[in-house]
Amino acid sequence: MSGSSPLGPATPPSDKELVLKVIPLPADTNGNGDIFGGWVMAQVDLAGSVIPARHVNGRMATVAVKEFIFKQPVRVGDILSFYACVTHIGRTSITVQVEVFAERHRAQGQFVKVTEATVTYVAIDDNGRPRPIEKRA
């Protein structure tokens, strides 16, 4: 895992690919005024699917979230950067590690790790059944 202390400044990972950048808006907040965790989870799912899409060459579905850790709250106006890498390719599935870093609204260029997750996607056919992933040369 990348970064430093769970509460202090962090460094985005050099061993993962930047796959998504997004700024949460006021409509994405929970009752505490922070960004709703479900919104963050949806963004992680989207970000995590970018690299597997290159391997699957067709439809895929999220089948598991092995681990999801919220380290810091996400706030309105943060610039979120999502980094991902494939950790395993099976016969029909691909597992991806996603790390999310925030540049706080008033501290651009300084990163804080806010979330990380391990997500598994499965290649599916037109009937929604698992199908083999073609091996790359």
Rank of each mutant, 00 (worst) to 15 (best):
P52I: 09
S4H: 15
R104M: 14
G3F: 07
V74H: 05
W39F: 00
A102M: 03
Q108C: 11
Y83F: 09
T11I: 15
S81C: 07
G33V: 09
G128N: 03
F68A: 15
V65T: 11
T115V: 12
P12S: 00
V96A: 13
I89D: 07
W39G: 05
P24Q: 04
R104N: 04
N57D: 13
R106L: 13
I35Y: 06
G38L: 06
N32I: 14
V122A: 10
T120W: 02
E103D: 12
P12I: 02
P52H: 09
V74R: 05
R136D: 00
Q110T: 12
F82M: 03
M41Q: 06
A61N: 04
P130N: 09
E67A: 10
H55C: 01
C85T: 06
K21I: 01
A53C: 03
E116Y: 03
H55M: 02
R75T: 12
F68G: 13
F101E: 04
E116R: 01
Q108P: 14
F101L: 03
D45N: 06
G3I: 05
P13Y: 06
V98Y: 02
E134K: 08
D45M: 01
P9L: 15
H105K: 08
M1R: 00
M41C: 10
V96P: 15
T95N: 04
T11A: 15
V76E: 11
I133S: 02
A107M: 15
Q72D: 00
F82Q: 03
V44M: 14
R129D: 06
D28Q: 10
L80N: 08
D78G: 00
E17K: 11
V65D: 03
T118P: 05
V22P: 06
T115M: 03
K71S: 12
K113P: 09
P26H: 02
T118E: 09
I23N: 10
D28L: 08
E17P: 00
A102P: 08
A47L: 10
S14P: 04
F36C: 06
S4N: 14
V40K: 00
A123H: 01
V63E: 05
V65I: 13
P12A: 05
A61P: 06
G38H: 09
D34P: 00
R129Q: 13
G77N: 07
T92F: 02
K21Y: 04
P6C: 01
V63I: 14
V44S: 12
V114Q: 05
P132W: 01
I23W: 04
V56N: 00
G90H: 08
V112T: 10
P24V: 02
S4P: 07
